[in-house]
Every structure is written in C-alpha cells, then in structure tokens.
C-alpha cells in the first residue's frame, strides 16, 4: 500500500510538472507577439520593447520557465492580456457560479443515470435496456451548445416557463439585496432563509444544469449497466439466486454495491470534464462563470487567461483522479498490489 501511495503521488507530481511545461509553452513561447498583444494594437516599437522587458521575454527560456513555475506555486498566475487583472483573481471570481452549476448537474446525473443503469442491467437486451441505452447514447452524442439553444427555444420562447439566461431576474436583483457568503445563490439563500432568492436562483439553474448533465447522465448509465451486468454473471449471484433470495435483494445488495466504485470514478472524472463543458454552454446561458470567462478569453486570444483556466482544470482532474484511485485502493486492497 505504501509503495502504491508513493508511486501514485509521484505520478501526480510528474503529470503536474508536464502540465506546467505545456501551459508555459502555450502561454509564453508559442504566441509570437506576446509583448505586442500585451500593449495593444496601437503601441509603438518602444512600448513593445518595454513590455518585453516587463514580461521578461528577453530572458533565456529556462529562466522564464522557472519564473512561471514559481509564480504558479505562489499564486501568481500572470495577468490577463485584455483586462490586465491577475488571472487567479479572475478565476476565483468566476469559479463559484460554475461550481454551483457543476454540483447540481452531477446530482442530476446520479439521480437519472443510476436508476437507468440498474434498469438496463435488470432487463439486459430487452426493451427497457434498449430504451435506457438509447437515452445514454443520446446523452453523450448531443452537442451541448445546441441542446442549450433548443431548451431555450422550448422553455423560454414557446412555453414561457423558464428564464433564458443569467443567474437571477434583473428586476429581482435590483430590488433585492443579495447576501454574499458562499458564492452560490441557492446556498446563500438557504443559509439566510431567503426563499425568494432560492426560487429565482433555482429557476435560472434548471436549463444550464440539465444541459450540462446530459453527458454525465450517459456516462453514469453506461457505467452502472456494464459493471452490474458483469457482477450479475458471477457465481455468487447464481448461488444467491439458487438459494431463493429475492431479485430485489440481489440487485440492491449484491450487484449495486460493487458497481458503485466505477460509477463514482466516472462521476468524479466527468465533473472535471463538465468543467470544460461549461466553456460551450455558459456563454449561451449568459452564466457568469469560468466557462464564459474562458470562452471570452479564447475569442480575445488572451493566452494567460486561457492557460490559467487550463491549469486549474488539469489540477482538478489530477487531484480527482488521485482521490478516486486512493479510495479504490482503500476499498479494494488488491488494486495496490498490481
């Protein structure tokens, strides 16, 4: 177990090192005109030369890299070329709305995906299985940005049931003082007992959360189905059947539990995946989160901002992976022996 732990931690360090090299090259070296970009289109040659010195672009690459790396560790992630604000500060400001969205969509993915997966495994190759597979494959096939627009057309334009975008009604926001605590309006509203705030926030969350959940719903359904069908084919299940243990108990107690490990993995990783999925849909829903920030940075070719978000998502991915592996090894000691 000790060696496994060390090996796994070492791997995470190697990977993060690679991430830093990659983003360094992408943000500082590849853009030919980083200094020109910094001072803007109307700058003089002298201003560009000053910017080169300010940004340290005249130093040898290893020196630049070390400075970049130590900045990453110290929390200095560079400044946005567009706003000239520190990237890490921007990320901190835009992250909470995205997290709120992520958490809700992950809950949705579990609430829909796990029952569908169980249904599939229970009725393998029969109609319920085919239907739930169709739902799962549809979930991973539908372009999220298109689904977002279709949902807006249906629920905002045609049915007039839900708002088209934003986090709160604009009139409500003007008339209402919004408490600032966690950064999630739903949580803040619950903590403050402000039900009007919770209601307005939830109404705005529904469409983006459903859109973002489509992909993980598909993943979770498939994972639950495949791990459960595998377990259901094993001898101890046959033995349980032969002993006359009711099907419900077999499914719920013997087959679902071993399927939860892989499902948790998929869910954890799909959360990190959804974080990049927000790039595609937050702009559509005018959701003031990290995804819209990143999409805006892409259009402006704001490399420090793009690579800041990239570093963040990569760290989240590595850390989630690490946690999932460690939990697995703890639950199933055989893994650490491999």
């Amino acid at each position: 177990m000790r060696t496994f732990l060390l090996r796994r931690l070492l791997l995470a360090v190697v990977v993060l090192f690679g991430v830093s090299v990659f983003t360094f090259l992408a943000a500082r070296v590849v853009p030919a005109d980083a200094a020109a970009k910094w001072v803007g289109p109307k700058a003089t040659a002298a201003q560009i030369a000053r910017a080169r010195i300010y940004l340290g672009l005249n130093d040898p690459l290893p020196v630049q890299y070390l400075r970049y790396l130590s900045g990453l560790v110290r929390g200095d992630w560079g400044e946005s070329v567009v706003t000239h604000q520190p990237v890490l500060g921007d990320i901190k400001a835009y992250l909470p709305p995205s997290l709120e969205l992520l958490v809700l969509s992950s809950l949705l993915a579990m609430a829909v995906g796990i029952p569908l997966g169980i249904l599939s495994a229970r009725y393998q190759d029969r109609i319920p299985d085919q239907l739930s597979r169709l739902v799962a494959i549809t979930g991973v096939s539908v372009p999220s940005f298109w689904l977002a627009l279709l949902l807006q057309l249906l629920f905002f334009q045609k049915l007039k049931l839900l708002p088209v975008g934003g986090r709160l009604d604009s009139v409500f926001r003007l008339a209402h003082s919004v408490p600032v605590m966690t950064g999630s309006y739903v949580l803040d509203g619950l903590l403050a007992g402000d039900w009007a705030l919770v209601g307005s926030a939830l109404k705005h969350l529904i469409l983006p959360a459903v859109t973002l959940a489509a992909y993980p719903i598909g993943l979770v359904t498939r994972m639950v189905r495949s791990s459960m069908t595998e377990v259901l084919g094993e001898d101890h299940i046959r033995a349980a059947r032969a002993m006359g243990i009711p099907n419900r108990t077999i499914l719920g107690r013997y087959a679902l539990k071993p399927a939860m490990g892989p499902t948790a993995t998929v869910l954890a990783l799909s959360m990190a995946y959804s974080l990049s999925g927000t790039f595609l849909i937050e702009a559509v829903f005018a959701w003031p989160g990290l995804g819209r920030y990143a999409a805006g940075a892409l259009i402006a070719a704001d490399y420090p901002a793009i690579m800041g978000v990239t570093v963040l998502v990569a760290i989240a991915y590595v850390v989630l992976n690490l946690i999932v592996d460690l939990v697995h090894a703890w639950l199933d000691p055989r893994i650490s022996l491999r």
């Binding site: 993060l16 991430v19 995946y273 990049s276 790039f279 990239t310 998502v313 990569a314 590595v318 992976n321």
Partner: peptide, 8 residues
C-alpha cells in the same frame, strides 16, 4: 496528455 479532459 491524459491528465487533461480531451475537449480542454
């Protein structure tokens, strides 16, 4: 490379 979500 696999430590990034492919889309990102």
């Amino acid at each position: 490379f696999l430590s990034f979500p492919p889309l990102l």
